[in-house]
Simulated assay, not measured.
Amino acid sequence: MKYIGAVMLLSIGMQAQAQFGVIQDKDGYTNVREGAGISRKIADKLQDGEVVYTWEQEGEWCNINYHRKNEIEGGFVHRSRIKMVNTFEKIKVRQQTETNVVFQQDSVTVMFTTRAFVEKDHQVHHGKSEEGFSFVEKIDGKDFYGCDGGLPTREYNTFTIQIGNRAVAVPDKAIRDLYQPNPELTEVFYDRKIDRLYIIASNSDGAGGYEVLFQFDRGVYTKRAIYYGF
């Protein structure tokens, strides 16, 4: 009970700081400005449907992060142009433990399990810092999320998604570099109007913490977005 209580407090704290949003603009795009105000210089444009990560508001303007060419950029967008993902239909949790979770509501079911990270099952590459300390640099030849220089202890195992009569595949590329998953800090939202499913997770903690959103359009995995929310 103490563990679950701590997880709930952590979740509340993170949700108060930042959350995922989606650009919605009848013009098909919206401007990203360098500061909070219509008079501030336009720095970029975001297309309708792009995922952003929103921080605090300054009046009517949201401070956001977004991805451009594998880099995280920042700026300000008017709050009327962003729909928060957590305002879509929330799929209810039916079963949840520290290692797995089941979400189910009407025609939507999402289940995933986690497993222990076993070093011998992976190719772990170590590097050395300027001070001579060894650290984990890559796993299976990839940069990875969830640990700050050490070995992970847990990883995603199986993912099962069913929308109506469709079985939805989650490709390995979407999850195999993501470690320290938190089933208790995972949520699922569904935009029935356009048949889009979002899975949001706050994984790991401390220096290794990260926020990930998986997006599925009409039963097909389309993208993920990863940010550092704390």
Rank of each mutant, 00 (worst) to 15 (best):
V51S: 14
I91R: 12
I199V: 11
Q215W: 03
E89T: 00
D177N: 13
D48F: 03
N63L: 12
R94L: 07
F216G: 11
T54H: 07
A225Y: 12
N63F: 00
Q162T: 05
A16G: 01
A6P: 02
Q105M: 06
V101D: 02
K120A: 11
V7Y: 04
N65V: 00
V7F: 00
A36L: 12
I72V: 14
N63W: 06
E56L: 15
K83V: 00
Q162A: 10
Q17Y: 04
F135V: 13
V118R: 08
R33F: 10
F76N: 11
Y228P: 07
T99H: 10
S204W: 11
D205P: 00
G59V: 04
L197K: 10
D143Q: 13
Y198R: 06
C147Y: 04
N182G: 09
R79V: 00
G28T: 08
F214T: 00
V52L: 00
C147K: 09
S39K: 15
E187T: 14
D121R: 15
Q15T: 01
Y3Q: 15
G219K: 08
D27F: 07
H78I: 08
G127S: 04
H78E: 03
R196V: 12
Q123R: 14
I200A: 02
F230V: 13
V77H: 04
A201N: 10
Q162V: 04
T114K: 05
D217V: 11
G37W: 04
P181T: 14
Q24F: 05
Q47E: 05
D106G: 08
G28R: 09
I161Y: 00
G209P: 11
E50M: 07
D27P: 12
G219P: 14
E137V: 08
V51C: 13
E60Y: 08
I200M: 12
W61D: 06
G49M: 06
G141W: 10
T113Y: 01
V51M: 11
Q162K: 15
R115N: 04
T99D: 15
K142R: 11
G219I: 06
F20W: 00
E58N: 03
D27V: 00
E187R: 13
I38K: 08
F76A: 06
A225F: 04
